[in-house]
Design a protein around this nucleic acid. Structure first.
Ligand SMILES: [Mn+2]
Ligand SMILES: [Mn+2]
Ligand SMILES: [Zn+2]
Ligand SMILES: [Zn+2]
Lengths: 149, 149
DNA sequence: TAGTTATTGAAAATGGTTTCCATTATCATT
DNA sequence: AATGATAATGGAAACCATTTTCAATAACTA
């Protein structure tokens, strides 16, 4: 894993950030799961590979990666933030169904092309009207999953 | 203000909840602002009218009102939840532009009809596919406001 | 009006996240 | 490959929004 996929190595250099082991391992952990991990969960997963990791570093790195756009930060309402790889192979743009009873998160990509087209159309008008530079968007549906309804 | 608009009086009875002064005043505060208040902000506003109010009661009541669907709960990323009247006169369905630099929140209603139609179309398909009962949705655009770009 | 019980408020506890700061590791330069 | 400047790290403590606990109070019902 050290060295890691070159596509994010360059990204780090570009920002003037150092490519450290903790950062690579955290990114590695996130790229190997399809779940939405909390900082604590990332911490525990990284610890198995790199026991010296500190929770503080996990928080800092998650912030950094989110700010670089490599990962996305979500609040699904369970009192902690959750993170997910945004860019790179194996991660496609999607939105979420959130069960308000058991907390289950369902990724969906249905209609995603229509959605992105529709949202970028809206976004364009909003940008103009409010003179607002749009970077990202989030769309989520809240309700009850099959087990909870 | 005691007694309050009858349309939420009935709502309370219907749920079997008591119509208390703190609850009415909190609802009253939220109905008189277009801002997105945090629990602390609600607490301070209510205190001016009803100094005996406790912060705990504010939290409890906000949960209750959200669960009743009278208000909506948001996390705009500033480390605290924010609340806004959902139902009733003067509050129309809308979505948000969120400035990631200064935290400013812009309500917009442009295209809201098209948007709602589009989203309910998507929602219908998702409901069927995932056997998921959708209650609400949120759509937000993140970026930089005119002052911050 | 009285009784039942949901609701309230203060204080303490909780728990996710941030801050502090001395130590360590990365990377450009010799 | 060794050096130096400094970005990055990790542990402990602080922070702070939210929740829990429990005795007192207020809302509704009969
Ligand atoms: Mn996802
Ligand atoms: Mn709003
Ligand atoms: Zn569920
Ligand atoms: Zn701004």
């Amino acid at each position: 894993m050290p060295g890691g996929p070159p596509w994010w190595q360059r990204r780090f250099k570009g920002y003037g950030y150092r490519l450290t082991l903790p950062r690579q391992i955290i990114l590695d952990v996130l790229s190997r799961t399809s779940r939405h991990l909390s900082a604590e969960e990332v911490y525990m997963a990284v610890r198995r590979i790199y026991p010296a990791i500190g929770l503080t570093t996990v928080y800092r790195t998650l912030d950094l990666l989110a700010q670089m756009g490599l990962i996305s930060k979500f609040d699904f309402g369970d009192g902690r933030n959750r993170y997910e790889l945004t860019a790179g192979p194996g991660s496609e743009h999607h939105h979420h169904l959130i069960c308000i009873s058991c907390g289950r998160i369902i990724d969906y990509t249905d209609f995603i092309d229509d959605e992105v087209e529709f949202l970028s159309m809206i976004g364009k008008t909003l940008s103009k009207k409010y003179n607002f530079k749009i970077n990202t968007h989030q769309l989520q549906f809240y309700g009850l999953c099959d087990k909870c309804r």
